[in-house]
Design a protein around this nucleic acid. Structure first.
Lengths: 216, 216
DNA sequence: CTTGACTTAGAACGCGCGTTCGCGTTATAA
DNA sequence: TTATAACGCGAACGCGCGTTCTAAGTCAAG
């Protein structure tokens, strides 16, 4: 779609509409747009509005007063904020909860709002709060919130939450598949890696996409 | 103001209005509110609307179609997103930059958008990206982003960035004033604290309000 | 020049929608 | 009981506002 097709008048209209909505909380009328952009006739405003709609710049609800909104605002408002459900706590001594299996230990309305600056996509992300100091070797403190993505494709070097069957503990490590064995590398470079000879004894719960800490 | 004064009908109206705005991008009319809440008369809707306005729940623009908005939405929309400038990198071997003294090493448009869920207030917050593994004893990795608040009032137990004059290094520690001396406690509980006998040799750069890590 | 697509103007139509008024119901207090 | 207020209903008034029709000005192609 070419965006250069917008005339100066149409560009002014779009700018005014956006400004108006932000100021007043509701869209302007045809006549308000006309007055602001120096258009005397309502039909001209209507004409250009229909044009902008066909261009995809805005969405109109016909027969409705103030029934228009900017498509841009629609996407920005919906897409820039991501609500991630806080589904539970992660403790070393027990398997960490996942959204599918058990339900949330917090109310389902418990969620963390994040921006695209922190997590780019939102494909079934969920959040867990770390309890205890058992994750210090993963550079993660008590109280930290980890944002998880269901594992699906785990690549070498990913920071993942795994449940170790034989040790009966949950841990956060970087995972490397080295032939038949698996190496679990702590994030803290001063700690030693764990080598797992039997891949069946590790269950990857998910990949850590972000860690958020709020000291006191 | 007592919030329990809302009747069931008024509460339903508020809920419907918020839902309607989110769905359509513009507020409902009096008659739409009435139909949705089972009110046959427009005057009743108008009556309760005026009541809600006096209660501070919503704002009305008189004589204007769809001229209403929720006060809550007003605050949330404007204030929920916080832009924090990314002013530079923090390295152990040099003093960390602060917004006032040196200017941003990144473009001034370099900023991170955060929500109120991560940082509550926005009083001159700024962000620094950690470079190097020198902060591992503060449980902070290479590449982590720390959100800082200019120090002002530093309380015991705050996680702060300090410049140590005699060691010539920047470090992130929890600070405790114990009489005349200062104790700098690493976040990693396995590490030993540093004791500073002369308070003049530490310069508090700011308080860490959040740490954000995005593993690869 | 004529033709036709694009854009602007002005005016009229008609329903949308906020406002207002009268009146009935219920509740709490004097 | 009456008085006052809070709350509800329905109808009518009147401007707000989207729609539509006619007409005219602009500009490039033929």
């Amino acid at each position: 779609m070419s965006e250069t097709k917008l005339s100066a008048r149409q560009e002014a209209m779009v700018e005014f509409i956006g400004q108006f909505i932000e100021e007043n909380g509701y869209p302007p009328t045809i006549r308000e747009i006309g007055k602001a952009c120096g258009i005397s006739s309502t039909s001209v405003v209507n004409y250009n509005l229909t044009k902008l709609e066909r261009e995809g710049i805005l969405v109109r609800d016909r027969e409705v007063s103030r029934g228009l909104r900017l498509a841009e605002t629609l996407r920005e408002g919906m897409g820039n904020l991501i609500r991630v459900p806080l589904v539970g706590r992660i403790v070393a001594s027990e398997p960490c909860p996942v959204p599918g299996s058990d339900f949330a230990i917090f109310g389902s309305d418990e969620a963390i709002e994040l921006t695209r600056d922190i997590v780019d996509r939102n494909d079934d992300l969920y959040a867990l709060q770390v309890q205890g100091d058992s994750m210090v070797d993963a550079m993660i403190n008590d109280g930290d919130v980890v944002i998880m993505r269901p594992h699906k494709d785990v690549k070498n070097g990913d920071l993942v939450a795994v449940w170790l069957l034989d040790r009966e503990e949950t841990t956060l490590k970087r995972i490397y598949k080295e032939g038949k064995r698996i190496r679990l590398q702590p994030a803290n470079p001063t700690m030693q890696p764990i080598y797992i000879e039997d891949p069946a004894t590790v269950e990857v719960q998910g990949r850590v996409v972000a860690v958020i800490r709020r000291p006191n």
